[in-house]
Amino acid sequence: MLALRRDDTAACARVGITVTKKIGGAVVRNRLKRRLRSAIRAVVPQHGRAGTDYVLIGRSDGLSRPMIDLMRDLTQGLQKLSKSRPLEQKA
């Protein structure tokens, strides 16, 4: 997961998802993206930082991992990123 702090005063966190072709064909990649979107909807409103862009990079483990574990991993990642400084700031 990557984070980018925006300078605007937006009241929401934005999230993007990327899944490479190494994971599998379009059907497999889309299944993983659907699972990640579901986890995002459940976790980011509570744990995401307003005015921050997040990028999730899909890994093949996400296909077989239980949904509760995906949500817990996402929560831990967001908490870890909120303690550290975002990678860069937009000018």
Rank of each mutant, 00 (worst) to 15 (best):
D7H: 06
A42C: 11
A26P: 10
R31Q: 13
K90S: 14
K21H: 13
M71N: 09
V28S: 11
V27C: 11
R72C: 14
S82C: 04
V15D: 10
R65P: 03
K83E: 07
A39E: 03
V43R: 02
S60H: 09
L4D: 01
R59T: 05
L74H: 00
S84P: 03
I40V: 15
T52K: 04
R5C: 09
R59W: 05
P86H: 06
L74E: 02
Q79D: 13
R14E: 12
P66W: 04
R6S: 10
K83C: 08
R35M: 06
A11S: 15
R35E: 08
I40C: 06
P86W: 01
P45F: 00
D73F: 00
R37P: 12
R34C: 07
R29A: 11
G58Y: 02
A10N: 15
R29S: 11
K83L: 15
Q46S: 15
C12Y: 13
T75D: 09
R41Y: 10
I57P: 09
G16E: 12
A11C: 12
L87T: 00
Q76L: 10
A50F: 00
K22S: 14
S38V: 01
M71A: 13
R72N: 12
L4K: 14
I23R: 04
K90E: 14
Q46E: 15
A42P: 00
Y54Q: 06
A26M: 07
Q79F: 00
V55A: 14
I23K: 07
L32Y: 01
Y54C: 07
T52A: 05
D8Y: 06
K90G: 13
L78S: 00
A11P: 14
P66C: 12
N30Y: 06
G24I: 09
L78V: 02
H47G: 06
G48I: 00
V15H: 05
L4F: 08
D69S: 05
R5T: 02
A13F: 09
L70Y: 08
G62D: 08
A10H: 04
L56E: 00
M67H: 12
S64E: 13
L63E: 08
L78T: 01
D69N: 01
G16A: 15
R65T: 13
T18W: 02
I40P: 05
Q89E: 10
R41P: 06
C12G: 07
V55D: 08
T9N: 14
G48K: 00
L78M: 03
R49Q: 14
R29G: 05
G62Y: 11
R59V: 04
P86M: 07
R49D: 11
S82V: 04
